[in-house]
């Protein structure tokens, strides 16, 4: 019904994409200002907020693997340790399962700090109907 879905056909289990990124203290302040409702105060601690770490996965899924046309359905995350501002983070996504009949793709998602320790691990589910 959805044609051959050449984009989906081109995906393979084990395919991976990664991105390295540093969030500065100033960016974290900007994030609290954006996310907070009126009257809310940003906390004193300045570890990288979880949604910015999650955003690295989102970027990879939407821009790289599977890429444009990705419909983000689910994301599960466990946060193992805080990442201070200025830390070099490396996020990666790896395809673990493809359901061709439903155009669904499962991926492992993990983010490491500069020392190689896991900051966040989890799984994503996306639809890639292309």
């Amino acid at each position: 019904m959805s044609g051959d879905r050449p984009g989906l056909q081109a995906l393979t289990v084990g395919a991976s994409a990664r991105i390295a990124h540093v969030f500065t203290a100033a960016q974290i302040d900007d994030w609290w200002q954006l996310a907070g409702t009126a009257g809310a105060r940003a906390p004193a601690h300045n570890s990288v907020p979880e949604p910015l770490i999650a955003g690295l996965f989102s970027c990879l899924l939407g821009e790289r693997l599977p890429g444009h046309g990705t419909n983000y359905l689910k994301q599960r995350m466990v946060f193992e340790r805080p990442a201070p501002a200025g830390t070099a983070l490396t996020a990666s996504v790896t395809i673990t399962h493809i359901r061709h009949d439903k155009a669904l793709v499962d991926l492992d998602t993990v983010c490491h700090d500069a020392a190689g320790r896991i900051v966040c691990r989890g799984r994503a589910l996306v639809r890639f109907d292309r």
Binding site: W31, W32, L34, A35, G36, T37, A40, P49, E50, P51, L52, A54, G55, S58, Y72, Q75
Partner: peptide, 12 residues
């Protein structure tokens, strides 16, 4: 963005 929505939740 989905993670902008998550951001609103996190701030709450």
């Amino acid at each position: 963005h989905g993670m902008l929505l998550f951001s609103l939740v996190r701030a709450q």
